Simulated assay, not measured.
Amino acid sequence: MALRFAEICIDAHDPEALAAWWGRVLGWPHHTDSDGDVVLTPPSGQGPLMLFLAMPDDKVVKNRLHLDFMPDDQQAEVDRLIGLGARHVDIGQGEQTWVVLADPEGNEFCVLSAD
């Protein structure tokens, strides 16, 4: 038996808005599936689907799982993401080569150094 990595599920107060934001970040299209969930579809071979699920609960603690992204130019990408609505967050990381940001609903992710 073999498993295939199919989806990353992300809880959201507003799945449509959060999927649209991540769609702008990644340049991936999104649509609503037959279950009413919002799906971000990567280009072929570039990763699993991102599935945004409606959740009324507020996020109250640091993510137990987060996404890391490797840009060509870290500072330019951080600036772009901040311009799109991401924000810097401190999760106790201290001085590191990566930058921790949060999406509009507070989900942390990292922008790694290109080096």
Rank of each mutant, 00 (worst) to 15 (best):
A2I: 11
A2V: 12
I8P: 00
C9F: 12
A12G: 07
D14S: 05
A17V: 00
L18H: 02
G23W: 02
G23S: 11
P29H: 12
P29E: 13
P29G: 11
T32F: 02
D33R: 08
G36C: 08
D37N: 15
L40K: 04
P42R: 11
P42F: 03
P43Y: 06
S44H: 10
G47A: 02
P48W: 03
L49C: 01
L51P: 00
L51Q: 04
M55P: 01
M55D: 15
D57K: 13
D58N: 13
K59T: 08
K59H: 12
K59D: 00
V60L: 09
V61A: 09
K62R: 15
L65S: 13
L67V: 10
D68Q: 06
P71L: 05
P71N: 10
E77L: 10
E77Y: 11
V78H: 05
V78Q: 02
V78T: 01
L81R: 07
L81N: 01
L81F: 14
G83A: 12
G85R: 05
A86T: 06
R87E: 06
V89R: 09
D90G: 07
G92L: 00
Q93R: 13
E95T: 08
Q96W: 04
T97Y: 09
V100H: 08
E105H: 08
L112D: 04
D115F: 07
D115T: 05
